[in-house]
Design a protein around this nucleic acid. Sequence first.
RNA 1: GCGGGUGUAGUUCAGUGGUAGAACGUCAGCUUCCCAAGCUGAAUAUUGUGGGUUCGAUUCCCAUCACCCGCUCCA
Length: 559
Amino acid sequence: MFRPENAFEKIVSLSKRRGFIFQSSEIYGGLGSTWDYGPLGVELKNNVKKAWWQGVVYGREDMEGLDAAIIMNRLVWQYSGHEKTFVDPLVDCKKCRKRFRADHIKGDKCPECGGELTEPRNFNGMFQTHVGPVQDDSGLAYLRPETAQGIFTNFLNVLQSMRRKLPFGIAQIGKSFRNEITPGNFTFRTREFEQMEIEYFCKPPQYLQPGEKTDDQLHQEWVEARYNWYLKLGLSPERLRKRPQAKEELAHYAKACVDLEYLFPGSLGWSELEGVANRQDYDLTAHSNNVPEADLARLKLNRNEHSTEKMEYFDEAWTDPATGKKGVKYIPYVIEPSAGADRATLAFLCEAYEEEQLSRPDEAAIKPLSDSIDAALKNIQKRIAEAAKRPGDEVPNGQQLAAMEKALLSAKEDLPGKLLEIDAACSLPGADRLDLLKKVKLIAGKLGDEHTRAVLKLHPRLAPIKVAVLPLKKNEPRIVEMGKKIKNDLSGHFRAVYDDTAGIGKLYRRQDEVGTPFCLTVDFQSLEDGTVTLRDRDTMQQERVRTEDLIQVIGRKIV
RNA sequence: GCGGGUGUAGUUCAGUGGUAGAACGUCAGCUUCCCAAGCUGAAUAUUGUGGGUUCGAUUCCCAUCACCCGCUCCA
């Protein structure tokens, strides 16, 4: 098993080649930072969303689902604070050309070089549109920049229609839109993206009954629940971490926030998949009328002049210790686990991508490769010596050359077994400028085709295709017929495909590369006794299974 | 938006001031009883887009768009 340095690039190209993710509007030159999910991508992302919904809605007693509109009354964004605070005032340094957020720097000079700054330019991250026939401000609306507000504005509807008591939560999956200044990194930061958000409503600390969990405890429980969800679906604990935000990072209304970060390959590195925040009573108060001055001041909110409701919960269990009066109305606290569906999908893809060498070329086949490596090494060592004499900005520079030398020397120790390492060494920064290394890459690549595989070790629940039916001999009509029948029978239960357009080895590699966990082959024995072989993607081990048991056997393995 | 890089078949890459090649992949046929086997044949690029220089540009120049790396960002 091998995870190359340039895995991210390989995943991008695999995504295109095998139908996971395409650049959007590609035939017109694309549109910045928009991506389309292809036939396998949509299956993968749907499976991620299904697993999330299963985990946070069906798998719990205290959750409801929701699907709110993308375009909402403009007042929602006025009172949520997005019209004001979603604006980033930006300034550029005229001297060193660095860019800063105006509200993050003190004074009017560049904090880096002391140069003069441009006037702040305001940039609202919300996409605008107009509702109705008249394109003026009366119809101004926004595409939602987060799904959360649809949950807050429906709080009372869900509370009443589902007869809920605190604590309970509402989950929603849907598209959101932000006119990011700097998108990038494939589908990691895009202007149109899909969120999986939860607002979990709970009692403020002063109204808790003995034995009930505090907002802090519930917050912590959600952090653990969400962290474990990613682990269960395959992310490695070495590449997933909980990062509590520092006090300075927190929004003024947030009591705490823990980011779940994944270590993506390449320059992306540790990046956020999900934030789990304790937002206290800020959001529901913001959308409420008749809020007492003291609460507005505490949360730094303006009075809401438009809302027709107060987002209150009537708690009949509570008794006022001073008066003995039963029942009290208050605005609940909220814990917000907010995840990115595209980011989760990308993380699962990155985690799943592996390369493996399955066999070793013999000595005769290795000879040209080892010769070409020796020649390349000689050349690299010569360049290292030259670079030491006159250090400059040349590519590759001394450091890059040293990295190539090290990688090649290490791979050389066990050449027949390190084809993947050789290929990776030839993909290091600057390596494409060395002709001798390009030659090595060519030779290693040829051997690699024969002796290695790329495999997506996706959790079976996430895999776009669950099972592929492969006939061992396609010019034997009885085998083909049986294979197609099995595929049809399975299709009612799992996403299944039938493929007979290549030799068995190539068919396996195809399915490996898109993460299909199970392949089954139909052979002559199948005709005799009604069994087929079931091959495991990760171990490549096979077992014989009776066709009538397939649904049960595969079903058990997929859960 | 600023600085650096890139843009040639599905993918990875080559190449030249006289209108493009390879490998892999894909498709069809034959063959094949288990891990990218073989044989035969085929399709696929107005060289990101738009201008300019030139008798002629994919190759030179300009603009634009997209992607990658930084600045930024927090799903």
